[in-house]
């Protein structure tokens, strides 16, 4: 082996090791942010011990992520729950929640999903379980992604309105029949600590546990399956993602087309084409894995010769 060849191999190995280190560092950083966010949004630890929910005034603020307000630790309100609560009254629609989502969505887009959502964290952790992973065919995947918009319109917006009488009293359809975060973060901890609530559990609780189990199992085999196909909050933020202040982009001049970004994407995107779209959760895994630093993120203008759409 010539000296030049040996030097090149050493340089490549060193670059590869540095690269792996950068990936691991990014993974640890992101996990830390996710854990801190989960602790921040569910900071009322006494609630878990006593089996009671927080009743402070901060609950009139909507947190920007899917975090059930029935969770004993929740310090704020879930925007989806809040939207349904107001939709089920004579008001029929919540401008307050809409405004909150517009502000967060415009500034951060789906960075909220990638870094701050506690239920996203749970899915990410479950996906780390070493099992064979399912690859959903692209055509089916594309169609299924529209399901979350149907969930948003039918269950979140229309359901409470349709089930309400003239004086209100509408049911929060998404929370009642689907939301796995409510079951996991609220239902199970509360029922474990309250005998009265346990006695009241019936078919609906079993149904919700079934939905929760399906979503959690799904997350083991398909990364972020709930975020991709069912989350109504993800659907809302996806609408803002294209023009949100925080963006990710591919520098086409630097990109060598190695394809290392696609397999690591938790949303199974064609990173070079779809990174600026509504489905990217801005987790940054593709940027961490890119060997030539062609993927950038942050709050900056896209230069004219970059990322031609």
């Amino acid at each position: 082996m010539s000296r030049m060849h040996r030097a090149r191999l050493t340089a490549d190995a060193s670059a590869g090791t540095n690269h792996d280190k950068a990936q691991r560092r990014h993974g640890r950083f992101r996990l830390l942010i996710q854990l801190l966010a989960a602790a921040f949004f569910n900071g009322y630890a006494a609630g878990f011990l006593r089996g009671k929910i927080f009743t402070g005034k901060t609950k009139l603020l909507c947190v920007p992520v899917l975090n059930c307000y029935a969770c004993p630790g929740a310090l704020g309100s879930c925007p989806i729950g809040a939207m349904q609560a107001v939709a089920g009254t004579r008001s029929r629609f919540s401008f307050y929640v809409l405004g909150t989502l517009m502000l967060f969505g415009t500034v951060l887009g789906r960075l909220l999903c990638g870094f701050l959502c506690p239920f996203g964290l749970i899915q990410d952790l479950l996906h780390r379980i070493p099992t064979p992973k399912l690859h959903i065919p692209r055509k089916i995947d594309k169609i299924l992604r529209y399901l979350k918009y149907a969930v948003l319109v039918i269950l979140v917006l229309l359901g409470p309105v349709l089930s309400a009488g003239t004086l209100g009293g509408g049911d929060p359809w998404f929370c009642k029949y689907i939301c796995p975060a409510g079951t996991l973060e609220g239902g199970i901890p509360l029922l474990l600590k309250n005998e009265t609530l346990r006695q009241a559990a019936g078919f609906l609780f079993s149904w919700k546990c079934g939905v929760l189990l399906t979503v959690l199992l799904g997350a083991v085999f398909v990364s972020r399956c709930f975020c991709r196909y069912l989350c109504p909050l993800g659907a809302v933020y996806a609408l803002f993602n294209r023009f949100a202040l925080y963006q990710m982009q591919v520098d086409r001049a630097r990109c060598v087309g190695c394809g290392k970004c696609d397999p690591v994407c938790p949303m199974a995107l064609d990173v070079r084409k779809e990174i600026t779209g509504g489905e990217c959760i801005r987790c940054g895994k593709c940027r961490a894995v890119c060997p030539v630093g062609a993927i950038e993120s942050g709050i900056r203008q896209i230069a004219p010769n970059e990322n031609k759409e």
């Binding site: 009139l60 309100s77 729950g81 809040a82 008001s91």
Partner: peptide, 22 residues
């Protein structure tokens, strides 16, 4: 419109629908 009051009233009581008790 007073939506914050509605949200707070809902959020400070255990949401039975959310936890699967209907």
């Amino acid at each position: 419109r007073g939506e914050c009051t509605v949200i707070l009233q809902k959020a400070v009581k255990i949401c039975l629908e959310c936890i699967g008790l209907g």
